[in-house]
Structures are given as structure tokens and as C-alpha cells.
Design a protein around this nucleic acid. Sequence first.
DNA 1: ACAACGTACAACTACTTGGTTGTATGTTTT
DNA 2: AAAACATACAACCAAGTAGTTGTACGTTGT
Lengths: 113, 113
Amino acid sequence: MTATDEDRADAWFHALADRTRRDILRRVLAGEHSVSALAQNYDMSFAAVQKHVAVLERAGLLSKRRQGREALASGDVEAVRSVGAMLTELEALWRGRISRMDELLAHPDHTQR
Amino acid sequence: MTATDEDRADAWFHALADRTRRDILRRVLAGEHSVSALAQNYDMSFAAVQKHVAVLERAGLLSKRRQGREALASGDVEAVRSVGAMLTELEALWRGRISRMDELLAHPDHTQR
DNA sequence: ACAACGTACAACTACTTGGTTGTATGTTTT
DNA sequence: AAAACATACAACCAAGTAGTTGTACGTTGT
């Protein structure tokens, strides 16, 4: 796995590690929303919400398009799938442990230390 | 979704948002390792690695058992699956958007603003 | 008994983060 | 033209993070 993959993963998980950002992501996956429309849902300043959106954007989890004075944000489901795929790879490592244990039971005399 | 679920999600994603911790998790999912055995893989102090292990443990992504002077860590695949499930829920929201778009195409005159 | 090993934790430092307010710039509406 | 709206970004602050070194304590090997 290259360094940039790890960089992307850092950004993904960091972006997801805040409940406000997860909530924003849910909304923009369900449909396009302007930043100020999003901001009205939270008990914090517009600037704070705008920063959260920027974190999600830098992580590639959402993208914005300009329409007049509004910035319309929508979620990128492909990025979400990529994060899911990384979790699936972790599971595969665990399954590898299981198959090595099977191996151990099948050929005990070659696997001892 | 309850507040504690969100707390757990905060801990999960925060724990995964560091490449050293992800690497540690890969190793302990593949098999049990002592903290000092893990530490030998990284160019940082033992104490730093021990802290990373503690973060993963607090997030419920790994558990330790004592054996003599060693603390053997192993990954919890069920927690990894729970994180994956959360991503799948996000995808489901996106699919909901698609079905609403289908709805829009099927009944355009009731859905205009 | 003693030295070495493995772990845990406290205290400290440099850096990052999540929030704030204020300011600037462009777009609608009146 | 002026007022209101939507966004972006800088500067600041309190709190948290990732690393360090040092210390303490139980376990293992000689």
C-alpha cells in the first residue's frame, strides 16, 4: 500500500471521527444541500459548519458545485465505498488468521516453534 | 441513533485515523502479539506504541490478555464489522436519494418546487 | 539474589483541532 | 443603488493529540 493511500485513509477516518461531520455526510449523501442550509441544523456558527464541510471536501467525501451565491454540497458514495473496502480488507486479515489455525490443526508437527 | 452509539463511532474512527494504529490493528487481527513485539516494528518509543494500543483498546478494536509479564493483544473483528456496517448505512442513504430521483421521474408534476 | 525484560503511567512539549468573531467578496432582491 | 444573503478565510483561543523521557512495579532467567 503506497504512502498516498495511507494519507487518504488518514483523511477519511479523521473526517469521519466527528459526529457533526458524519451527520453532514448523511445529509449530503441523501441529497444536495447548500452550506447555509446545512448550518441551520447545528448549534454552532456558520463558519464552524463551513469548516466541517471543508474537512469532508478535502477528504474527498463530498464535493461542492457553485450555483449563484450558493455552494451546493453532495456526498461522494464512491469514497464511502472505498472506506468500507478498507474495513473489508481488515476482516480478510482476520480470516487469514483462522485459515492459519486450520493449517495448524491439519499439520501440527511442521508449525511448532 | 443514541448518544452512546455516536460516542463509540467517534472512538472507532479516531482510532482508525492514524496509520500506526491501523497497522497495529492489521497485525493483531492476523494474530496475537505482545505490546513489545508490536513496538519493534515502529520507529518510535515503546511508550508511544503502548499508547496507540491503549487507544485501540479503549475504542474496543482490540483486547489484551495478560500472560506472565506480557500483554497479548488481539484484534476484535466484530468491532471492525460494526464500523463497516456504519459505512453501509451511509451508502443506504445514498441509495435512498436514487430512489427519490426515480420517484421524481415517475411523477414529475407533484415534485416540482 | 540480582539483572534483564515487559508493561504501565505521569509529566512535559510541539502541534493540531474545533470552536469563536471579524472582515472581504460576490450574488440576489428590493 | 442599497440592503440582505451566501460564502470564504484569517486570527485567535481552549482543549486535545502524538510524541518524548523518566519512574515504578511485577515477571523471568541466570
